[in-house]
Design a protein around this nucleic acid. Structure first.
Lengths: 210, 210
DNA sequence: ATTGTAGTGTGATATATGTCACCCAATTAA
DNA sequence: TTAATTGGGTGACATATATCACACTACAAT
């Protein structure tokens, strides 16, 4: 059950009335690791705030390709679902649960209302957009200027920062996230192993580069 | 000279006090076409609102590469300069005037203050971030999933939407914006000419594909 | 123990793009 | 008019990445 204590820990800067509004209007939902929470083109009916676990955000191609952009952690929100002004907005991102997660779903009719009512909500929305904008800039920097070996390193470092130095991903997983093929990832990881950057195991590897 | 009429036309949704605040605190500046307004890594000292002309926003590489992301037109603002909370923020984008421009420079110390004081400023900041976030998503979609021929078409269409069907750019200009080389652009344009999509002239070409 | 499957390694080859060299044509400067 | 500069065309080649084919191994299921 959702408690005010949980909320104050996750969102320490909010004003009191906002906690109550959340307790009244938000639904606490759960999802298993691997679940797709939002597809591109899908109508957005509620805002999504992460309570527990990690979500990955992707750009999705019509032909099935995916490109990983950033993680969402507890206390963070999916920017695209913090819609103001319009209903029937379509998602331009793909969101997947990487771990089992809990999240708050807030019907979008409250978004406009809360922007008026709660200053701290207003700040939260701006902070969210700002930080996600910065993540997108980093992503563009990677894709526009770096070769696959550097992008792979950048990708692994993001993983390591989130989950620690033991990378529990198959080559295929990584290839999907970087919109390339398994063979390419296999060969590049082999190079990293030769360079002494990683120790490879089946289904995982350890990042040991200092 | 900056008048209240100009402001109400550019920013029709603002509340009255905000116009006055702008008239008091903002400086109306000018810049010639081609001027660099903001470099990556540069300290941000003021927010930038476009009054007249067009600005191009780029992601910039340490080694001199550039990637064009989107245009800013009158009534729009550079999202990264609408800083809240911190001074000494560094720009993560490169901004260049494409035409002669006029813009408002607002010292960043007012950003925090105005967020508290003016609801319409608060909305303006959110709207700005939201729309720029969407532009970045489109950019990522292009680079992550499309080959250079499609990215070139996307690029030309953005130009045509801004300035009309006569594209006054050299192949080198385009190559710089897409972080590739002139030869690549020359060859792809030649293909487009064969396909009947463009008519080429020296220093320009016409987009005639319907 | 046998079989199946998922994860991985690797050569061969295809394709897209980057790079180099050099040429020519149009415009500008002298 | 001539020379210099800028924009553009194009072949040859280099490189990064994508694709295909197939082999191998660890682990799981039976």
């Amino acid at each position: 059950m959702l408690s005010k204590e949980t909320l104050t820990k996750l969102f320490p800067d909010w004003e009191d009335g906002l906690y109550d509004a959340i307790l009244n209007e938000a639904e606490l939902k759960e999802a298993k690791a691997g679940t797709t929470l939002l597809k591109m083109g899908q109508n957005i009916k509620s805002a999504m705030l992460v309570v527990e676990g990690t979500i990955k955000l992707y750009q999705e191609d019509e032909t099935g390709g995916e490109y990983f952009m950033y993680h969402l952690n507890p206390g963070e929100a999916c920017a695209v679902t913090l819609v103001c002004n319009y209903h029937h907005e379509q998602s331009q991102v793909l969101a997947k649960a990487v771990t089992d997660i809990q999240y708050l779903a807030i019907p979008i009719e409250f978004m406009e209302k809360w922007l008026n009512e709660f200053k701290s909500w207003h700040y939260f929305v701006i902070k969210t957009y700002r930080s996600r904008y910065e993540e997108l800039l980093k992503t563009i920097h990677e894709i526009a200027f770096k070769n696959m070996d550097e992008r792979l390193e950048f990708y692994i470092l993001k993983y390591v920062k989130q989950f620690g130095a033991i990378v529990n991903l198959t080559h295929q997983d990584i290839a999907n996230d970087l919109n390339t093929s398994r063979e390419v990832i296999s060969r590049l990881l082999k190079k990293m192993e030769h360079n002494g950057w990683i120790i490879m195991n089946r289904n995982s590897f350890d990042w040991i580069k200092k």
